[in-house]
Nucleic acid binder design. Structure first.
Length: 827
RNA sequence: GCGAGAGUGGUGAAAUUGGUAGACGCACUGGACUUAGGAUCCAGCGGGCCAGCCCCAUGGGGGUUCGAGUCCCCCCUCUCGCACCA
């Protein structure tokens, strides 16, 4: 038994939290199996990168997930709630270089520390399913999946131009090039042509796009972002034959209706035909110089900066397939090689970029789509006319509506066999090669005789060399001769291992499936377990992963389905993108110096207070402004409940059977409020996880219990109210509630209790307030029985003194009665 | 430029989806109990004439309605994402 606290006492969170955490750990309270008759529920928070210590963003993310997990358990679900570590990546290598330790040592130390922090928060994970992507028992299965995908043609190797830092000897991601220089050593970044491995995500572009419509449990924002990222365009692919040559320039356009308005052709500086086109022409030197300068300028320019439209004539012409007209070919700095074909048919009258270019170089502007209203005069135009209209100067299509003409012109191009309907995506294949050490080695071998040979599955895993010993080398693999040297599995001759490692996004693309089969050592995924658990019912994480991670995970799910591992089309049924944690108006970050350390908070207030505050301060999808005094408030609330329960625990000697007929007024009011609170809290969680309003509902009930009363409240009613408070609050403040549950004499743990069900009859008000409005403005209020009929309400309202005064003897024009709510009298 | 979202007290936010605007909390003010209060309890707390359920008030302006924070139109501001995508 606890000593009765004096008013100065704070509840002893430290002892309480440690006691329950120890018990949960010993009893493996949240261990689950897919062999269950209960309905399943899979709740998952995006796993963390083991950077060193958890931050407030983690605290918020995992608090939200934990409340959902605990709530769903109490609702009778078999809940899968796992945790792991997204453990490969560059920070480990940087830290290793700086401190002279191995990336593996740094990573595992961080994992151990952070695991302790998560346990101190009392999060209800099935720790037996913990995984770390840098461990061979994870990445060996990723290597196996790689081989299966390679065999199925889902992975290929090609040569591309990458950003290369010579000092760091590695490829840089686009985000790591700052003003044309390496983010780490500030040396200029060079374009380098090299081979790399790619996932054929474009092969799934259409399905990835179409299935977005099924993701009704995702924020619209994220769906839209993915849709834009995939960027589907439909139009005409068409060839413009080069004059005096048997070659042609392939173009793609979404505006075939403007093809009669083409007055020049623009090529990207990287276009492969440029060499042929300028060879021996007087313009050759000028074009080559322009290409050189533009390539450099593009690199130097920051990514969000639009360059002035510039270009140069190649001296060559191509022919418009519809008119046979000669079209001068230019090389232009604004044409992207990565999109479409790298060649653009230029229609300056109806495309703003072409318009600017034409004006700069004195090229003709020909109107072929006349919008409604004033006829367009090319000489007077100040910008391109990009809207719809009626075709003019367009041969047989003249007079046609531009929308219809799009289709008609495609049909004609197909008939004459120089073009066809075509779909283009903005999405590009996913480059997964990294020239770094701390990642999963790509399991292939290069043989001079056999070419690229997959590593036989029996030889997996291809271990990361040196990761086992603390002093092992962590140079990039291409600098490790012992790793490279091998023999060809096919012909047995000396061969070289692939030295690229996989992009870390590959690991996070399937971890949610691996959680269903922890420790399985015969396959990456147990099909039965995956079929039971997947899809993830509720996924929770930051919106910063809206595109990359969430798109890759969707892509992987579809590949794994096609390989026979999974039975689902989509990995995450519902997605909650939680807002950032803000302090002093900015995201918490070391560089801004506004970080709040969760450890210190837990030390000072306990985990339950920290959880409660982060759930109470804002709804989960919104940014949360950190407020130290708000934390105090949450702590104060828990202390208040603690004192309340302990001081009134005598009521727990009574059974909680409420005899409605015997209740006095305050008892009836509390009984009613109790059931109203159950309803409100349940609905708040159920509809949109708005824990902030759920908690305020509980606070109201607590306030009512504490409110002074004329007559003593019935013990059974009091007990019901206190038990309800503890049960509803349990998912948010689990140690606290579990402790008080035990203190008040319960034998079974609150963790095993069922979520309370509200009694509609008990929640019903028997007397309600009716608002009386005159012309829509509140003038007075009526206290009436809840079941007062409309006629009576009308009579009572008109009889009110105040209303009578405003009526001044006139008949009301109209009286609107909303039963249970208000009466509005229109004068 | 395109797309998405958001503007409510001093402050974080509520508002059963068209029905009492500001629940709940923080801050603040006054009081009680105290050697003390940064503990606890009680009371107050959008603005105004503070006289009252009187008037004004949900970024601004119109509209629909008996009634609008909520629905429609126009405008302003902020945040996020994409961005020369042919």
């Amino acid at each position: 038994m606890q000593p009765a606290p004096t008013t100065n006492d704070r509840y002893d969170f430290k002892t309480i939290e440690q006691r329950w955490q120890r018990r949960w750990e010993e009893e493996k309270t949240w261990k689950v199996s897919h062999r269950s008759d209960q309905p399943k529920y899979y709740v998952l928070e995006m796993f963390p990168y083991p950077s060193g210590r958890i931050h407030m963003g983690h605290v918020r993310n995992y608090s939200i997930g934990d409340v959902i997990a605990r709530y769903k358990r109490m609702q009778g679900f078999n809940v899968l709630h796992p945790m792991g570590w997204d453990a490969f990546g560059l920070p480990a290598e940087n830290a290793a270089m700086k401190r002279g330790i191995h990336p593996a040592a740094w990573t595992y130390d961080n994992i151990d520390y952070m695991r302790g922090q998560l346990k101190a928060m009392g999060l209800s994970y099935d720790w037996d399913r913990e995984l770390a992507t840098c461990r061979p028992d994870y990445y060996r299965w990723e290597q196996q999946l790689f081989l299966k995908m390679l065999a199925k043609g889902l992975i290929y190797r090609k040569e591309t131009t990458v950003n290369w830092c010579n000092d760091c000897q590695t490829v840089l991601a686009r985000e790591q090039v700052i003003d044309g220089a390496c983010w780490r050593c500030d040396q200029p970044v060079l374009p380098k042509t090299m081979y790399g491995w790619f996932f054929k995500i474009t092969g799934y572009a259409e399905e990835l796009l179409a299935d977005l419509d099924t993701l009704t449990g995702w924020p619209e924002k994220v769906v839209t972002m993915q849709r834009n990222w995939i960027g589907k365009s439909t139009g005409l692919a068409c060839d413009f034959r080069i004059e005096d040559s048997d070659q042609a320039i392939a173009i793609f356009t979404t505006r075939p209706d403007t093809i009669f308005g083409v007055t020049f052709m623009s090529l990207a500086v990287e276009h492969p035909l440029i060499d042929t086109l300028v060879q021996g022409k007087p313009q050759e030197e000028a074009v080559r110089a322009f290409v050189r300068d533009t390539v450099l300028a593009k690199q130097r320019a920051s990514l969000d900066q639009e360059l002035d439209k510039r270009g140069v004539f190649t001296g060559s012409y191509c022919l418009n397939p519809f008119t046979g007209e000669r079209v001068p070919i230019y090389v232009a700095n604004f044409v992207l090689m990565e999109y479409g074909t790298g060649a653009v048919m230029a229609v300056p009258a109806h495309d703003q970029r072409d318009f600017e270019f034409a004006r700069a170089y004195g090229l003709p502007i020909r109107v072929v789509v006349q919008p409604e209203g004033e006829p367009l005069d090319p000489a007077a135009m100040t910008e391109a006319s990009e809207g719809p209209g009626v075709l003019v100067n367009s041969g047989p299509f003249t007079g046609m509506d531009s929308t219809e003409a799009k289709q008609a012109i495609i049909v004609e191009a197909e008939r004459q066999r120089f073009g066809s309907a075509h779909v283009t995506y903005r999405l590009r294949d996913w480059g997964i090669s990294r020239q770094r050490y701390w990642g999963a080695p790509i399991p292939v071998i290069h043989c001079d005789h056999c070419g690229i040979v997959p590593v036989p599955e029996a030889d997996l895993p291809i271990l990361l060399p040196g990761a086992g010993e603390p002093t092992g080398s962590h140079s990039p693999l291409h600098q490790q001769p012992d790793f490279i040297a091998t023999t060809c599995p096919s012909c047995g001759r000396p061969a070289r291992r692939e030295t690229d490692t996989l992009d870390t996004f590959v690991e996070s693309s399937w971890y949610f499936a691996r959680y269903t089969s922890p420790g399985l050592d015969s396959a990456p995924i147990d099909r039965k377990a995956a079929a039971y658990w997947l899809p993830v019912d509720q996924y929770i994480g930051g919106v910063e992963h809206a595109i990359l991670h969430l798109l890759y995970a969707r892509f992987f799910t579809k590949m794994l389905r096609d390989l026979g591992y999974l039975e689902v089309d989509e990995p995450f049924t519902n997605l909650l993108t939680q807002g950032m944690v803000i302090k002093d108006g900015a995201k918490m970050s070391k560089s801004k110096g506004n970080v709040v350390d969760p450890n210190e908070l837990i030390e000072q207030y306990g985990a339950d207070t920290v959880r409660l505050f982060s759930l109470f301060a804002a709804p989960p999808e919104r940014d949360l402004e950190w407020n130290a005094q708000g934390v105090d408030g949450a702590f104060r609330f828990l202390n208040r409940v603690y004192r309340m329960v302990v001081s009134q625990r005598a009521c727990f000697d009574q059974p909680a059977t409420v005899d409605l007929d015997a209740l006095n007024a305050p008892s009836r009011a509390l009984h009613r409020k109790t059931h109203q609170t159950i309803r409100r809290v349940t609905e708040s969680i159920e509809s949109n996880f708005h824990f902030n309003t759920a908690i305020s509902g509980i606070m109201e009930l607590v306030n009512l219990v504490a409110a002074p009363v004329d007559e003593p409240v019935d013990d059974a009613v009091l007990r019901e109210a206190l038990e309800t408070i503890l049960t509803l609050l349990f998912p948010m403040a689990p140690h606290f509630c579990e402790e008080l549950w035990q203190v008040t004499g319960h034998e079974r743990a609150l963790n095993d209790a069922a979520w309370p069900v509200f009694n509609a009859e008990a929640a019903k008000e028997d007397e309600i307030t009716i608002v009386v409005q005159v012309n829509g403005k509140v003038r007075t209020k009526l206290q009436v029985a809840a079941d007062t009929d409309e006629h009576t309400l009308r009579r009572l309202a008109v009889a009110e003194e105040k209303v009578a005064k405003m009526l001044a003897g006139q008949e009301p024009k109209k009286i609107i009665v909303v039963p249970g709510k208000l009466v509005n009298i229109v004068v």
